[in-house]
Protein backbone atom coordinates (compact mmCIF):
# COMPACT_ATOMS: atom_id res chain seq x y z
CA UNK A 1 0.00 0.00 0.00
CA UNK A 2 1.38 3.41 -0.91
CA UNK A 3 0.84 6.64 1.03
CA UNK A 4 -1.42 7.82 -1.79
CA UNK A 5 -4.04 5.36 -0.64
CA UNK A 6 -6.40 5.53 2.34
CA UNK A 7 -5.06 6.37 5.79
CA UNK A 8 -5.73 4.17 8.80
CA UNK A 9 -8.89 6.00 9.77
CA UNK A 10 -10.46 5.35 6.41
CA UNK A 11 -9.66 1.69 5.98
CA UNK A 12 -11.96 -1.00 7.26
CA UNK A 13 -11.25 -2.21 10.82
CA UNK A 14 -11.02 -5.81 9.60
CA UNK A 15 -9.70 -7.36 6.44
CA UNK A 16 -12.21 -7.42 3.62
CA UNK A 17 -11.96 -9.93 0.82
CA UNK A 18 -13.28 -7.98 -2.12
CA UNK A 19 -12.71 -10.22 -5.11
CA UNK A 20 -14.93 -13.17 -5.98
CA UNK A 21 -13.13 -16.49 -6.00
CA UNK A 22 -14.66 -17.34 -9.36
CA UNK A 23 -11.80 -15.27 -10.71
CA UNK A 24 -9.34 -17.73 -9.20
CA UNK A 25 -9.17 -20.77 -11.44
CA UNK A 26 -8.34 -24.03 -9.72
CA UNK A 27 -8.63 -26.19 -12.83
CA UNK A 28 -4.89 -26.54 -13.24
CA UNK A 29 -4.66 -28.62 -10.04
CA UNK A 30 -5.98 -31.72 -11.69
CA UNK A 31 -4.17 -34.83 -12.86
CA UNK A 32 -7.30 -36.61 -14.09
CA UNK A 33 -10.00 -35.14 -16.30
CA UNK A 34 -13.61 -36.32 -16.23
CA UNK A 35 -14.87 -37.58 -19.58
CA UNK A 36 -18.59 -38.24 -19.90
CA UNK A 37 -20.28 -40.87 -22.02
CA UNK A 38 -23.21 -38.88 -23.43
CA UNK A 39 -25.22 -41.98 -24.25
CA UNK A 40 -24.94 -43.58 -20.83
CA UNK A 41 -25.65 -40.35 -18.92
CA UNK A 42 -29.22 -40.16 -17.64
CA UNK A 43 -28.96 -36.50 -16.44
CA UNK A 44 -29.81 -37.52 -12.89
CA UNK A 45 -27.69 -34.52 -11.74
CA UNK A 46 -26.11 -36.33 -8.80
CA UNK A 47 -22.67 -35.23 -9.99
CA UNK A 48 -23.87 -31.61 -10.03
CA UNK A 49 -24.94 -31.92 -6.40
CA UNK A 50 -21.89 -33.81 -5.15
CA UNK A 51 -19.13 -31.84 -6.90
CA UNK A 52 -17.21 -30.05 -4.09
CA UNK A 53 -16.10 -27.33 -6.50
CA UNK A 54 -19.38 -26.59 -8.21
CA UNK A 55 -17.60 -27.39 -11.46
CA UNK A 56 -20.50 -29.23 -13.06
CA UNK A 57 -23.35 -27.02 -14.22
CA UNK A 58 -26.89 -27.93 -15.15
CA UNK A 59 -27.94 -26.01 -18.26
CA UNK A 60 -31.75 -26.05 -18.37
CA UNK A 61 -31.84 -24.47 -21.84
CA UNK A 62 -29.78 -27.34 -23.27
CA UNK A 63 -31.29 -29.98 -21.04
CA UNK A 64 -27.78 -31.18 -20.33
CA UNK A 65 -24.90 -30.80 -17.90
CA UNK A 66 -21.58 -29.16 -18.60
CA UNK A 67 -18.19 -29.63 -16.95
CA UNK A 68 -16.35 -26.44 -16.11
CA UNK A 69 -12.74 -27.60 -16.36
CA UNK A 70 -11.56 -24.19 -15.16
CA UNK A 71 -12.51 -25.29 -11.64
CA UNK A 72 -12.49 -29.10 -11.73
CA UNK A 73 -9.73 -30.39 -9.43
CA UNK A 74 -10.03 -33.92 -10.80
CA UNK A 75 -11.04 -35.56 -7.51
CA UNK A 76 -13.21 -38.16 -9.25
CA UNK A 77 -16.23 -37.93 -6.92
CA UNK A 78 -18.50 -37.53 -9.96
CA UNK A 79 -17.13 -40.71 -11.58
CA UNK A 80 -17.33 -42.64 -8.31
CA UNK A 81 -20.92 -41.60 -7.53
CA UNK A 82 -22.36 -41.86 -11.05
CA UNK A 83 -25.07 -44.53 -10.82
CA UNK A 84 -24.59 -45.61 -14.46
CA UNK A 85 -20.78 -45.21 -14.62
CA UNK A 86 -21.02 -42.66 -17.39
CA UNK A 87 -17.98 -40.68 -16.22
CA UNK A 88 -14.43 -41.86 -16.63
CA UNK A 89 -11.37 -40.17 -15.16
CA UNK A 90 -8.60 -39.93 -17.76
CA UNK A 91 -4.98 -39.04 -17.08
CA UNK A 92 -4.30 -35.61 -18.52
Amino acid sequence: MTSQEKNWKEISPAGVCWKSSIQFLTGDWKTYTPVRDLEKCTRCLLCVLFCPDGAIHWKPEKGDIEFDLNFCKGCGICANECPVNAIEMRLE
Binding site: S21, I22, F24, L46, V48, D68, C75
Partner: peptide, 20 residues
Protein backbone atom coordinates in the same frame (compact mmCIF):
# COMPACT_ATOMS: atom_id res chain seq x y z
CA UNK B 1 -32.54 -32.46 -7.91
CA UNK B 2 -33.16 -30.21 -10.90
CA UNK B 3 -34.48 -27.38 -8.74
CA UNK B 4 -31.48 -27.63 -6.46
CA UNK B 5 -29.11 -27.73 -9.43
CA UNK B 6 -30.77 -24.63 -10.87
CA UNK B 7 -30.45 -22.62 -7.67
CA UNK B 8 -27.37 -20.41 -7.90
CA UNK B 9 -24.42 -21.44 -5.74
CA UNK B 10 -23.86 -19.22 -2.72
CA UNK B 11 -20.62 -21.00 -1.89
CA UNK B 12 -18.73 -20.31 -5.09
CA UNK B 13 -16.24 -22.21 -7.20
CA UNK B 14 -12.61 -21.21 -6.96
CA UNK B 15 -12.27 -21.94 -3.24
CA UNK B 16 -9.02 -23.68 -2.43
CA UNK B 17 -10.17 -26.81 -0.62
CA UNK B 18 -8.33 -30.03 -1.48
CA UNK B 19 -9.62 -32.17 -4.31
CA UNK B 20 -12.39 -34.40 -3.01
Amino acid sequence: AKEIAEKPDLFLSGHRACAG
